[in-house]
């Protein structure tokens, strides 16, 4: 609580929005007034504030209900993918840091190769090869952001590994596992949590973009990116069905960014997408 109190206004706003979206992601489907797939109105692309809070979509479904239903994909897939990417990246980095220079070099070189496949390009190749599905999307996003996580964790771990207290533990004859888990890990955990947040944002953006291209979450399921795509024909009339989900995504990612930024005191921001 002390942490939140000491944050600037932008951070508090971010924290509030994050809590709000997580709430929606968990309880959204129960709160929805209609079923997400039910066609409730004859009129398509109804405006905000009519019979339906956020209007209707391109075939007359309730946008508000679809939003409540779709949020869980946009929150939980990235959450899981970012967790996988960060923990795998951190573990490999720890292993690399306590191994000899040769192992370290080989791992680093391979990760450098993976990192130079832009994540969108990697996703396109994977989807073309396997066809899109939720488990595949999870794999793609986790794999494509793991090398970035590794790189950051390794830089941190190597820094810590050169500290005298690790040398002391080494002269004591401690095992590599002890060095990695007890001496190094606790000191890189905090920055890696921030990295986790950033990676979450990257995955949300990537997943939404893929869904927007029609290559992400497949019907009948729909995440927020899919909602934008399916209603894009309503853009010409400024339908809320296309604008609201897009804005919803932005508020999620911006909120996480603002929160992390204020937690880190505005430290440097990692390159987007890497």
């Amino acid at each position: 609580m002390k942490v939140i109190k000491s944050m600037p206004l932008s951070g508090k706003l971010g924290a509030l929005l994050v809590v709000f979206w997580v709430f929606i992601a968990i309880f959204g489907p129960w709160l929805a007034p209609h079923s997400a797939s039910e066609i409730v109105a004859y009129d398509v692309f109804e405006p905000i504030g009519g019979d339906y809070v956020l209007g209707t979509d391109y075939i007359g479904r309730d946008v508000f209900s679809r939003l409540l239903d779709g949020t869980r994909f946009t929150i939980f897939i990235p959450l899981l993918a970012a967790a996988l990417a960060c923990s795998a990246g951190t573990l490999i980095a720890l292993f690399s840091a306590v191994s000899g220079p040769r192992t370290d070099e080989v791992i680093a070189r391979f990760m450098d190769a993976l990192i130079s496949i832009p994540s969108k390009i990697f996703s396109l190749v994977m989807i073309a090869a396997f066809g899109s599905s939720v488990p595949l999307l999870l794999t793609i996003t986790a794999v494509s952001y793991m090398p970035g996580s590794f790189r950051i964790a390794r830089a941190l771990a190597v820094n810590v590994a050169n500290m005298d207290f690790v040398t002391v533990a080494r002269t004591r004859g401690e095992s590599r596992l002890y060095l990695a888990v007890k001496e190094i890990l606790p000191n890189i955990l905090h920055p890696m949590l921030a990295d986790f947040g950033l990676r979450f944002v990257f995955v949300v953006l990537l997943l939404s973009s893929l869904s927007f291209l029609g290559l992400g979450v497949q019907p009948p399921e729909a995440d927020l990116g899919s909602l934008v795509r399916e209603n894009i024909s309503g853009l010409a009339e400024g339908a809320p069905a296309v604008i609201i989900p897009a804005i919803a995504i932005a508020t999620i990612t911006i909120a996480v960014n603002l929160l992390i930024d204020s937690l880190r005191g505005g430290a440097t921001y990692a390159a987007r997408g890497k």
């Binding site: 939404s208 973009s209 927007f212 400024g238 604008i243 897009a246 932005a250 960014n257 603002l258 921001y269």
Partner: peptide
């Protein structure tokens, strides 16, 4: 500038694109 850039790096391109279309092409 920090708040602005922080927000802009988190915005999906398709949101910016749709807003542009809405403003400059439609409206």
């Amino acid at each position: 500038m920090n708040i602005f850039t922080l927000s802009m790096v988190a915005v999906p391109e398709f949101l910016l694109a749709t807003i542009f279309v809405l403003v400059f092409a439609v409206e």
